[in-house]
Structures are given as structure tokens and as C-alpha cells.
Design a binder for these strands. Structure first.
Length: 424
RNA sequence: GCGGGCGUCGCCAAGUGGUUAAGGCAGUGGCUUGUGGCGCCACCAUUCGGGGGUUCGAGUCCCCUCGCUCGCCCCA
């Protein structure tokens, strides 16, 4: 029989990795709770049209990366490639938007059919934040600050916050025309990818990695120059707010987010330690999305951060040592039918009393069982052999001490003693 | 979707055409029918991701395929 494998790009998180994830998730929850942000959970599966309308049909995410299929009822379904569209859909569907501003967070798996590489899987995990109904430039800064502090809370340093303004819809239309006009005249100097994008998505040419294209772009009209006075002022307010929070940022005029719904503030938090996929967190303002999905006119800001990339950085930051599984308080060792019958009940009583208890079913030589007890880091061993079983007693052995005398106690006395000694 | 690298035991890893595939860790059994962390002994890949081919002979060469990985694209 050929053993089956997980699908390409679908990764198992084994027991030794799970603690890092839990730690990060706990940190995130804590930061959200302090900031008064409530969790929302939405389905992993949505109608395909939600993403087509929300993210934009012309984007790569929608065009070629979605896990889409027809269900038994002939509905077009898609495994969510990102979280924002679903959150907005849910907020509209349940009338959350008529109850005032919503400060929400979500977390969980997302799916994108791409070639896996460092920091990128087909099923990956994001934690995201969405502020719905907030227009104030300071809310952009607040959202960014929460991301920044959360990342710091996980213990990461050396991150860069890159900031840009994409302006209003009108600003972008104006700029796009200017940029396309200018680049058309120099089409032959563009790399093939960028030539393609001249028609499909001209703004994306700005963050081309091609050196020649970048050199050319240095002379090109800039987005910043195309911003209307109100847009520019708004962007300045965001920067002021960040400065007051003492959050350092770098203006990056080439920063263009990939999804259609972004306007005005756009930002990314990047790390130089991640290889090609440097972005840990990305987000921005999306004042038109809610309306586009059939809801009331509602300003919004949000971001998403990539768990896999965060885990990569956290592991690099605090090394592999912090991942040790928590050691049990008590390890139950038994040998002989009568004794073995008592082991599980004793373990359960211990657990009910609040102790972390593991037990050995092997019935192997005591030496073997002690070896295992020792390896798993248990503080104490409870030993039941033929004699103890007959006497209704348990031997408590201190695994940390070298030569402390063992104690012979009843089960009750043993558990009481452990509780008092502070092991629980 | 496109390019580069790689694929030998659960993990790490020798081996680069010649008869029998090192070693370490982990695991199992024992030295010690009932007391651990050390030590010692034994066991643990008829087989080198899979399938074809070349050859007297292949883990070692060729082709295909699958997987992993890094990069491009894109993005968190």
C-alpha cells in the first residue's frame, strides 16, 4: 500500500511547532482584547462572486490563484483567498454596520493556488483586523499601531513599516492616465512583464523588481504629485498620528497593494530576514469595498498578517529551545496486572486534582518506564507494583533529586501532598 | 505558469559503475523478573521517492514522473 501524502502546499503542523503558533495566537488575542477589538469568524467557503467583486477580477489572486469549484447544487464556490471580503460580507448580511463602527479581527486558513516557496503555502494562515465605519486618519494609525505592537509583542525586531498613499479613486484615475501616457512613449525600455501590465494593471509597474524599469521610473510622474490637496492632507494626518505614537515609518512611493479595493493609506511591514517573501503584514484603507459589495457607504481600514512568516521570524528570534513541550507533574509507572489496573484511575484522579499526569501502559521493566518518565521531564513518578497494589499504597519518587527516600503513601495522601507542595 | 538545486531507515548522514548499502540520534530487547538520568551488548533499509532505459553489473549514467526546496510572477 502506497502511503498517501498531504496535497502540495498543504502543510502539517507537528506537535513540536504547535507551541510557537499558540504563543503567537495568544499574543494576538491579548492585543486585540486590550484594544477593544472583537473576533469574527466566517466560513472558509464563499460564493466565488464575492471575491471577484471584492478583490477585483483583474488581480492575479482572482484570475489564477483561487481554489474554485462547483458544488452539488451547481453553485460557484471558492475557498477564501483572503479574509476582508468575507468579513465585509458578514457585516453587511447581519446589519452590523447600522450598529456603529465595527472593530473586528479574524484568523484562520486562506487558500491560494500558487507555487509554494519560503513563507508561502497554498493553505496559509492569516490574522487580520478590520475597522468598518471609521474614516478618521487617526484610525489608520491606530490600526497600524496595533499591528506594530503585536509584532513587537511576539518579540520581533528589525521590522520596517513602509507607507504610501494611493489617493482617492479620482487621483488614481488621473495618475494612471498620466503614467500610461508617459510610459507608452518609452515602451521599448520596459521589461516584458511591465509592458503587459501597461494594459492590465499599470500601477503595478511601480513596484517592478526589474532594475532597468526602476531606473526609468525615477523620471516618471509620481503618484504623490498626482494627489489632490485633500488626499495629501489626509496622508499627512496619518503620518502625524504615527509620529505621535513614535512608530517609525519609511515613505515608499512605489508601494502599491495588489488588491483592487485599496485607496489612500497603504502600508506593509517587512523584514529583511524572510527571503523573497518579505512582507509580514500588509494592509490599508478601503473606503469603497463595502459599497461595492452591496452595503452602505462605509469607510474602512484593515490589514492582514501572515502567520507562517511570523512563525519563521519568531523562531529565528528566540531559537528552537522555547518550543519544548510542557513537562508533566506526575508520571505513573506500573507493572503487574493488579498494579496496571490501578494506574489509569490514579492518573485520572491526579488530573481531576489539577495535576498534569502521564502514564505508561507498557508494563515493561521498571527501569524502562523510569527512563521514559525521566525523558519526558516529569517532576515525580508514582510507582505501583505488585506489593503496592496489594497494600493499597503508591510509592512517590522524586525524579529531580538524586537520592531522596521514596515515600509510600495512599493515593489520597499522595495527591494531597503534591497539591500542597505546589506542583499543581 | 516559468527557471535553478535536491530526493539513501522516523531524523541527521557516508557512499560518485563492481560482488555483502558506513556511522550518529531516536526506537526496541538485554546486562538489572521491582526502580531513572551514565555505561555496555544486541536488534533496527533484500534497499537507495516511483517507473523505464544503458550496462556483464547502477544508489551511483540517461529519460520520464512524483515530491521537496529556492527564485521569478504574485502576495500575507
Amino acid at each position: 500500500m502506497e502511503p498517501l501524502q498531504s496535497l502540495r502546499g498543504m502543510v502539517d503542523l507537528l506537535p513540536e511547532q504547535t507551541p510557537v503558533w499558540q504563543r503567537i495566537e495568544a499574543t494576538a488575542r491579548q492585543h486585540f482584547r486590550r484594544a477593544g477589538i472583537a473576533e469574527i469568524r466566517t466560513p472558509l467557503l464563499e460564493v466565488t462572486e464575492l471575491f471577484a467583486r471584492g478583490i477585483g477580477v483583474a488581480t492575479d489572486v482572482v484570475g489564477k490563484e483561487m481554489y474554485s469549484f462547483l458544488d452539488r447544487g451547481e453553485r460557484h464556490c471558492t475557498l477564501r483567498p483572503e479574509g476582508t471580503a468575507s468579513v465585509v460580507r458578514a457585516a453587511i448580511q447581519h446589519g452590523l454596520l447600522s450598529q456603529g463602527a465595527q472593530r473586528l479581527w479574524y484568523g484562520g486558513p486562506m487558500f491560494r493556488y500558487e507555487r509554494p516557496q519560503a513563507g508561502r503555502q497554498r493553505q496559509f494562515h492569516q490574522i487580520g483586523l478590520e475597522f468598518l465605519g471609521l474614516a478618521d486618519p487617526r484610525s489608520d494609525a491606530e490600526a497600524i499601531a496595533i499591528a506594530w505592537d503585536l509584532l513587537a509583542g511576539v518579540g520581533l525586531a528589525g521590522l520596517t513599516l513602509e507607507l504610501n498613499s494611493l489617493g482617492s479613486h479620482d487621483d488614481r484615475v488621473r495618475f494612471r492616465a498620466a503614467l500610461v501616457g508617459w510610459l507608452e512613449e518609452r515602451r521599448d525600455q520596459l521589461d516584458p512583464d511591465s509592458q503587459q501590465r501597461l494594459v492590465s494593471n499599470p500601477l503595478r509597474i511601480l513596484d517592478s523588481k526589474n532594475p532597468a524599469t526602476q531606473a526609468l521610473l525615477a523620471e516618471a510622474p509620481t503618484l504623490a504629485a498626482a494627489l489632490a490637496p485633500e488626499s495629501r492632507e489626509r496622508f499627512e494626518r496619518v503620518q502625524e498620528a504615527l509620529s505621535r505614537l513614535e512608530i517609525p515609518f519609511v515613505l515608499n512611493p512605489r508601494l502599491v497593494r495588489g488588491l483592487d479595493y485599496y485607496g489612500h493609506t497603504a502600508f506593509e511591514i517587512t523584514s529583511s530576514q524572510l527571503g523573497a517573501q518579505a512582507t509580514v503584514c500588509g494592509g490599508g484603507r478601503y473606503d469603497t469595498l463595502v459599497q461595492q459589495l452591496g452595503g452602505p457607504v462605509t469607510p474602512a481600514v484593515g490589514w492582514a498578517l501572515g502567520m507562517e512568516r511570523l512563525v519563521l521570524l519568531a523562531q529565528a528570534a528566540d531559537g528552537p529551545a522555547s518550543q519544548a513541550a510542557p513537562a508533566p507533574d506526575l508520571y505513573v509507572v506500573s507493572r503487574g496486572a493488579a498494579a496496571e489496573a490501578l494506574a489509569l484511575p490514579l492518573a485520572r484522579r491526579g488530573r481531576r486534582a489539577g495535576l498534569a499526569v502521564e502514564l505508561d501502559f507498557s508494563g515493561a521493566a521498571f527501569g524502562k518506564q523510569f527512563k521514559r518518565a525521566d525523558r519526558c521531564g516529569a517532576r515525580w513518578a508514582a510507582v505501583i507494583g505488585e506489593a503496592e497494589a496489594a497494600e493499597g499504597v503508591v510509592v512517590l519518587k522524586d525524579l529531580r533529586a538524586k537520592a531522596t527516600a521514596d515515600r509510600r503513601l495512599t493515593a489520597e495522601a499522595l495527591l494531597a501532598w503534591l497539591r500542597e507542595s505546589g506542583s499543581a
